[in-house]
Design a protein around this nucleic acid. Structure first.
Length: 273
DNA sequence: TAACACCTGTAA
DNA sequence: TTACAGGTGTTA
């Protein structure tokens, strides 16, 4: 479920449930998900450590421990984290289980595209995608002035630019389509051809759609996600994503679906220019 | 910058 | 059977 609002929803939940818990053992069903260590090395480094909290940057989760090393997690397409107490049913597609002093933390992932890394608890992680993240799209650092300075120097199309995590972190396919609709911009618009006024609208639109997603506990599409206890509610608030063939909520024009930069893309041909 | 690769599951 | 899916790193 992984764009910024979904990852942040999981972060809140995990921070609440797992902070203060001690890792007593680990069951690693799929060690290849751990990208920079063997399963045994991960187990060695984390067993006996206490989880001190969970933070997030972009779409990455950082599970902090009281030891020298901590755990960095990227959920990719279908990863999720679940905290369980008691016996419980076996969860489908569980890939790694952290047995805690109270309950257990389960990394679940249907498509197994997710990534976990053992990283230093302090300082740079050495993980390229993480260390090079741009400002979070919902942070005060992500301003219209920043965005304009980046856009004016590149001829890329705006949608792939916004998906580039080194420019702005946390946006994915859903929230980019939603933000471009709110800003009235075609996904194929060239970055250097967007006016200052439109950049202002786009910056505000990004803050708006991320805040909405967060307020609604994230977006849940395709029932197999679920995960962190409860599903999000933002799917019923989407304006264009998944609405191809349906009327635009603003003007009634049929929402169009095209492929852009390899991603399914939804827009209103009348409202977005 | 586009295609492909990594995977599994579901819907057309 | 095929296309597609909330992502991203590598390769042509």
């Amino acid at each position: 479920m992984p764009e910024l609002p979904e990852v942040e929803t999981i972060r809140t939940y995990i921070d609440e449930k797992a902070a203060g818990r001690r890792i007593e053992n680990m069951i690693i069903y799929l060690p290849r998900l751990i990208k920079n260590r063997s399963g045994d090395e991960l187990k060695q480094a984390l067993t006996g450590r206490r989880i001190t909290g969970c933070s997030r940057k972009g779409k990455y989760l950082f599970l902090h421990t009281d030891g020298a090393m901590s755990l960095l997690i990227h959920l990719r397409m279908t990863g999720s984290l679940i905290y369980e107490t008691g016996k419980g049913e076996e969860i489908r597609a569980q890939r790694i289980i952290f047995m805690l002093d109270t309950g257990r933390l389960i990394y679940r992932d249907i498509r197994t595209l997710g990534c976990l890394w053992l990283v230093p608890s302090v300082g740079l992680t050495g993980i390229q995608g993480y260390d090079t993240l741009g400002p979070d799209g919902n942070s005060p650092d992500f301003t219209a002035a920043y965005l304009y300075s980046k856009l004016k120097t590149t001829h890329r199309k705006i949608k792939p630019f916004l998906l580039d995590q080194t420019q702005v972190a946390g946006l994915g396919n859903i929230y980019v389509d939603e933000a471009l609709f709110l800003a009235g911009l075609r996904p194929s618009r060239r970055c250097d051809a967007i006016s200052k006024a439109a950049v202002q609208r786009l910056c505000e639109a990004i803050h708006t759609v991320l805040a909405e997603g967060l307020a609604n506990g994230g977006t849940t599409v395709r029932n197999f996600i679920g995960g962190s206890g409860k599903e999000g509610q933002n799917q019923s608030h989407l304006r264009v994503y998944g609405r191809e063939g349906k009327p635009c909520l603003a003007c009634g024009t049929t929402i169009r679906y095209v492929k852009l930069a390899g991603r399914g893309t939804h827009y209103c041909p009348h409202c977005q220019r």
